[in-house]
Computed example of a mutant assay.
Amino acid sequence: MKSYPIYMARRSYRGSDPKKRGKINEFNRVAGRVEDYLNADLAQKADHTINTYLSYSIAHNVGEDSALVHEIVFATDCGSNGITIVKGDFDKAMQRMSSPPEKAIDGEATA
């Protein structure tokens, strides 16, 4: 499980093959877009929460190739289908998940 703010793994290539360099540059470009998307989405979430994102959903939301996004997410967290990110304190997030939601006066649940 990764922590917010998230940093997506990048790759480097020190050789002179332009085709390989282009492939690495594309990987890093998409990794940056995925990183920006996840951090922007997590910024809107409440503190002390655990959030899960599926690779195909990330790919759809950033408009990039699903296989490449899956490769990037896997390189970052080794999740087979996505990534789990904790925002804030892990123990508080787990406690928040296990406790029932509080009831407001009008009967709706509050966070």
Score class of each variant (00 low, 15 high):
48 H>M: 02
44 Q>P: 00
28 N>E: 03
13 Y>W: 01
79 G>C: 08
108 E>V: 11
71 E>F: 01
8 M>A: 11
83 I>N: 07
82 G>S: 08
34 V>A: 15
19 K>V: 15
21 R>E: 14
46 A>T: 05
86 V>T: 15
67 A>W: 02
51 N>K: 03
62 V>R: 05
35 E>Y: 02
96 R>N: 14
6 I>G: 06
105 I>E: 15
60 H>Q: 15
82 G>H: 04
71 E>G: 03
93 A>E: 03
76 T>S: 15
6 I>D: 05
84 T>N: 07
52 T>I: 10
93 A>N: 05
100 P>S: 11
1 M>D: 02
39 N>M: 04
53 Y>P: 09
107 G>Q: 07
47 D>L: 03
40 A>D: 14
22 G>D: 11
90 F>R: 13
9 A>T: 15
51 N>D: 10
81 N>C: 07
75 A>T: 01
1 M>F: 10
106 D>C: 09
9 A>R: 12
60 H>E: 15
42 L>V: 05
65 D>L: 03
44 Q>C: 01
33 R>C: 08
16 S>P: 00
59 A>H: 02
92 K>V: 01
76 T>V: 08
52 T>W: 00
23 K>V: 06
104 A>Y: 00
11 R>K: 15
103 K>P: 02
87 K>R: 13
89 D>V: 08
14 R>N: 13
46 A>W: 00
38 L>G: 07
24 I>G: 06
19 K>I: 15
66 S>M: 06
37 Y>P: 08
53 Y>H: 04
35 E>W: 02
93 A>Y: 01
108 E>D: 11
10 R>T: 14
111 A>Q: 10
62 V>Q: 02
109 A>C: 04
24 I>P: 05
12 S>V: 07
53 Y>N: 09
94 M>T: 09
45 K>Y: 03
65 D>W: 01
55 S>N: 15
24 I>R: 09
91 D>I: 04
84 T>I: 13
32 G>Q: 06
111 A>C: 07
67 A>G: 07
89 D>F: 03
5 P>S: 09
17 D>P: 04
12 S>N: 10
71 E>W: 00
31 A>H: 01
102 E>L: 13
109 A>N: 09
54 L>R: 12
35 E>I: 04
47 D>R: 03
17 D>M: 04
49 T>N: 04
55 S>Q: 05
76 T>N: 05
96 R>F: 06
93 A>F: 01
85 I>C: 08
62 V>S: 03
73 V>G: 08
111 A>D: 11
3 S>Y: 11
51 N>H: 09
95 Q>N: 12
47 D>F: 00
82 G>T: 06
40 A>I: 00
101 P>L: 14
78 C>K: 13
81 N>R: 11
94 M>F: 07
86 V>P: 02
80 S>Y: 02
70 H>Q: 15
46 A>D: 12
7 Y>D: 12
66 S>A: 14
73 V>T: 04
78 C>P: 00
13 Y>C: 07
108 E>H: 11
38 L>F: 03
66 S>C: 02
88 G>A: 07
16 S>L: 05
81 N>P: 00
107 G>V: 08
